[in-house]
Design a protein around this nucleic acid. Sequence first.
DNA 1: AATCTTTATCGTAATATTGCAATCTGAAAA
DNA 2: TTTTCAGATTGCAATATTACGATAAAGATT
Lengths: 110, 110
Amino acid sequence: MGATKTEHFTDKQNQIAILAKALGHPARIAIIEYLMKVDTCICGDIVDKLPLAQPTVSQHLKELKNAGLIKGSIEGNSICYCIDEKAMKKLQSYFAGIFVNLEKKKSNCC
Amino acid sequence: MGATKTEHFTDKQNQIAILAKALGHPARIAIIEYLMKVDTCICGDIVDKLPLAQPTVSQHLKELKNAGLIKGSIEGNSICYCIDEKAMKKLQSYFAGIFVNLEKKKSNCC
DNA sequence: AATCTTTATCGTAATATTGCAATCTGAAAA
DNA sequence: TTTTCAGATTGCAATATTACGATAAAGATT
């Protein structure tokens, strides 16, 4: 054991979980926030902005990329990373949906 | 190593990461979705709805509770869990903010 | 070509997560 | 009070994550 039993859940549940998991680390939140702030997404100085060693940052970038939250394109010698809007929209609308639902039953217990 | 270096990040970044991490498992997404669907939050049959053993479900509930996403109150013999709107709102507005920001700079690279 | 710069990958150690059987706790029912 | 029932906790095995030094890969610069 130790492995998540993904086969027992719906595709959508797994998809959202993958996205949420990828954001479940402060370094990766920091990366996303940095990518948002920077206009030109000439990245690579991400490493300089984070308090982590270069291989660690590279690994976090890989995880964000695997989850589909960012995409990178080769820019000469270096690499240009930026946020993938589609994935971000998926998360945004998921939570918006939950929130609307909660408002509706503006209830009750606990 | 192996432990997240939370001290290097802002409180807000850590907070969002904690919430996201708690949702980073399909079983916990399924729990949240079930709690949303059920009107009366008389819970406890969550175990029956999930393809996991009772101790495992109990652990997932604990993690959601620790993150602040759900709250539980003792209801006689059993326990009544439900979603904590405040935490959900925090996530919702965070992603909404990101999304607005991305729309604004409807740009450019990658 | 030799070197530099940028990013990825490998290997490894420390720690965390996932999952469950067994067991405990505490309230309700008998 | 004994039994029963709902949940939590413990203990453990399997696996995943986090972090980084060392090194590799590949384009840029000299």
